[in-house]
Amino acid sequence: MIHIEGLGKSYGGQWALRHASFQIRSGEAVGLLGANGAGKSTLIKSMLGLLKPTEGTVTLASDAVYLPEQPQLPETLSPLAMLRFKCRARGWAQTQAETALHEAGLAQQAWNRPLRQCSKGMRQRVLIAWCLCGGHEKVMLLDEPMSGLDALGRAEVLSLFKQRRESGAAIMMCSHIVPDMVRLCSRILLISGGVIREEVTIREHSLSEAEILEKKLARWQ
């Protein structure tokens, strides 16, 4: 579903990402773990074409759905208007917007409220709904999807992404919250200094696994 070969991005001779190669199969979720400035967002944006890669190739089996890290949503629009736009642009039925908002757990009273009146958590749910809307994409690239959500909200959203994974989607997720990553992903790529240093396979999806992972990451800092 996702095939990355020797992907690299440099800014004026300085490499922000180099020699990234990996594959993600259908029905698999892979985490990308690294400190701030390690190259996580650069990798995802290069995969999407938002950044023009300096080297390497990206092959995505279908259109990718992308959840950027804390974008400032247009304040005068309502959540429903945002999602209806996506449906219109893709030629989907308008009802899919409502279904996605419902699925993302956004209270119905907030659907028509301007986004400037929505809390941070509500906005994050709008973004989750944006990703879930339509449900046609088989490739999901998520940058800090749990940002701004409380523990309960995180659990709900994780289960939504698990459902998508089980229905055959290939998911790549960046996050600082290691336990969430461990719960969703079967493999974690440790990235540091723009280079993927290690690939860790998750066997237990438990907290102890998360601690091990954090120790491994610390070694690469």
Partner: peptide, 16 residues
Amino acid sequence: RDIEQKVCHLLLTVPL
């Protein structure tokens, strides 16, 4: 706003 606050990232990956 579109460029600075990444709204265009959302819009471009609709995809557009």
